[in-house]
């Protein structure tokens, strides 16, 4: 694995909790205390009811591949040509993009079961990567 760093992350007051959660080993989903709905990506208010009363729930980290690509060009370290990137639909219903690790080609398909692998990529960046549910 290359020592090159992944792209840096822009964090603001609406998204801080998500990145702080990963540092604590938790995959968080923003939750509205008024209408009980979830949303990702997070924002300053609930997109469903416009409430500013928001907190977060911890995801089980389980989900399925909703779509995926294999990135070939351009790729710069630490990424490798052909690495799969998936759009995960979590059990809770929200989706997120994730680099898909520890997978064989036949494990990358729409509908495949996956689980989170929270990973300290470097001193600054901790990400919710995903991997096959059974490896």
């Amino acid at each position: 694995m290359s020592n090159a760093l992944r792209p840096r992350i822009g964090v603001n007051k609406d998204t801080q909790f998500f990145w702080d959660g990963l540092k604590q080993g938790k995959l968080l989903i923003q939750h509205c205390k008024d209408c009980d709905q979830l949303q990702h990506p997070p924002g300053p208010c609930c997109k469903h009811c416009q409430s500013f009363e928001l907190d977060a729930i911890e995801s089980t980290g389980r989900g399925t591949i909703h779509s995926f690509v294999r990135m070939h060009h351009p790729v710069a370290p630490p990424f490798e040509a052909g690495h799969p990137i998936v759009l995960v639909e979590l059990e809770e219903g929200t989706r997120l993009i994730a680099d898909f690790i520890n997978s064989k080609p036949e494990q990358v398909f729409i509908g495949a079961a996956v689980k989170v692998a929270i990973t300290d990529c470097d001193d600054e960046v901790t990400l919710a990567l995903f991997e096959p549910a059974s490896i």
Binding site: R6, P7, R8, I9, G10, V11, N12, D14, T15, P41, V69, M71, V75, F79, H83, I85, L96, I97, A98, D99, C121, V125, L127, L129
Partner: peptide, 11 residues
């Protein structure tokens, strides 16, 4: 911040 949901994963 919006790019941050995708670019660190290589997208």
């Amino acid at each position: 911040a919006a790019f941050g949901w995708h670019s660190p994963h290589g997208l």
